[in-house]
Design a protein around this nucleic acid. Structure first.
Lengths: 140, 140
DNA sequence: CCTTGATAGTCAATGACATTGACCATATAT
DNA sequence: ATATATGGTCAATGTCATTGACTATCAAGG
C-alpha cells in the first residue's frame, strides 16, 4: 500500500494516538504512576477543575454509569476524591487529590516532551499544520 | 484551552479517528452491512489476501487468541471463511467471502469519499501534509 | 402545599474486546 | 528420533462500555 494512500489514514491516526499515549504511560509508570490507562488521562483532564459524574460522562461522550466506573478507578488509584456539593445534596463532586494534580502535571509534561520529539523529527511546521488540520476537521 | 495547544493532540487524533470511522460505519450499515466495528474493518483489510489467525494477530498487534475471536465474529457476519491450508495441516486460512469482498470495496469507497470531504473542507495540501506527517511520526 | 418531571447517583446484567495460561496437533531442524 | 517452534483451541479473567430499573433530591406550576 502506498504509504500516503488515503486509505491508510485511519490506521495512521490510530497508530499515532497509540504511539503518543503508550510513550506517556510508560513514562508515568516509571515516575510512580503505574496502571494509568488512556481513558484515565482524558478523565483526569476533564475532572481537573472538579465536576460530577454526569458532567464527566458528557465531557467524555459516555454514559454517566461509565463515567462513574472510571471515577471509581481513579479514586482507587488515589487520584480523585469524592466531595459533597453544598448546593445540591444529590450531587457528588469529583476533585483531583494532590497526587492527582501531580499526575496531571507529569502527564502534561510527558505529552509536551513527546510531541517536542515529534517536532524535532518531522519539523515544527508539520506538527503545527497537523494540529490546525485536525482541529478544522473535527470541529464539525 | 488553545485549540492548537500541543496537549490537545491526543484528543484531536482520537476525535478525528472516531469521526472518520463512525461516518464509514454509518454508511456501511445503511448499505446492508450493519454491526461492523472498528476492529472488523482493520481485520478485513489485514485478511484481504488471506492469512491465518496467528498472522492476523501479528498484523493487528494483538494475541492470536484475540485474532481468533475477531475472525469468529467476521465468520458469523458472513464476511470470512475458514479454509484448509494444503501445505500445513495445522493451519486454517481465513479468506474473505464474496460478501466480505463487497464489504471491503464499499468500506474503501466510503473512507475515500469521507476523506475527500475533508479535503474539500480544509484543502488538499493540508490532508497531504497530514498523511506525510503521520507516516513519518509512526514509522519509528 | 403538593404533584410532576427532570436530574444525580446506584445496582445489576450484559456485551465487545482484549489478556494470560494451559493444552494438543503438526512442522521443522539437528 | 528427539527437541523446539508454531498453529489452534479452551477457559478464566480484566477493562471499558452499554441498557434498564431503581432511589433521592431538586425545581416548577397548579
Amino acid at each position: 500500500m502506498d504509504p500516503a494512500d488515503d486509505l491508510s489514514l485511519p490506521f495512521l491516526l490510530s497508530a499515532a494516538f497509540d504511539s503518543l499515549v503508550d510513550a506517556v504511560h510508560a513514562r508515568l509508570a516509571a515516575e510512580g504512576f503505574p496502571g494509568i490507562r488512556a481513558v484515565h488521562g482524558f478523565a483526569m483532564q476533564a475532572i481537573s477543575a472538579g465536576c460530577t459524574s454526569a458532567e464527566l460522562g458528557q465531557r467524555l461522550g459516555v454514559s454517566k454509569q461509565a463515567a462513574t466506573q472510571t471515577a471509581k478507578a481513579l479514586t482507587a488509584l488515589g487520584l480523585v476524591e469524592r466531595t459533597a456539593d453544598p448546593t445540591d445534596r444529590r450531587a457528588i463532586v469529583l476533585v483531583p487529590t494532590d497526587r492527582g494534580i501531580e499526575m496531571l502535571e507529569r502527564s502534561a509534561r510527558a505529552f509536551r516532551e513527546e510531541i517536542a520529539r515529534w517536532r524535532a523529527r518531522v519539523g515544527e511546521q508539520s506538527i503545527d499544520s497537523l494540529l490546525r488540520t485536525l482541529t478544522a476537521v473535527t470541529d464539525g
